[in-house]
Amino acid sequence: MLINGVAIIMLIGGAFFFLVGTIGLIRLPDAFTRMHATTKCDTLGAGMILVSLMINQGFHMISVKLFIILLFILVTNPTAAHIIAKAAYNSQHMPTDVDSSIKE
């Protein structure tokens, strides 16, 4: 019963962070700020949902696979964000309303 409660709390937390990420994706003004919202919130949201499923499954082979997906998302999500940001920063299609000057 307690284990189920913890799993449901984690599920709700994951769903909430996915919601925040999606609202940020729609509300924020340009590509870089949208990336801020989506990267952080999706990493934590996916992590929380996977941890919840791992708690639900207990000590099982499926948990190991879920843990591999968790590690994979934890490594690749920031990397993908970095690649997209670099492409947008260096490309000709830079959004015109972004202040690209660098402050020291």
Binding site: F16, V20, I23, G24, K103, E104
Partner: peptide, 23 residues
């Protein structure tokens, strides 16, 4: 902490952001 920060900013109706690049 980062997620709670982002949630505060995104759910705030006035959207308090000052985006800029630093080196």
């Amino acid at each position: 902490k980062a997620n709670i920060d982002v949630a505060k900013i995104v759910l705030n109706p006035s959207l308090p952001i000052q985006p800029h690049f630093i080196k």
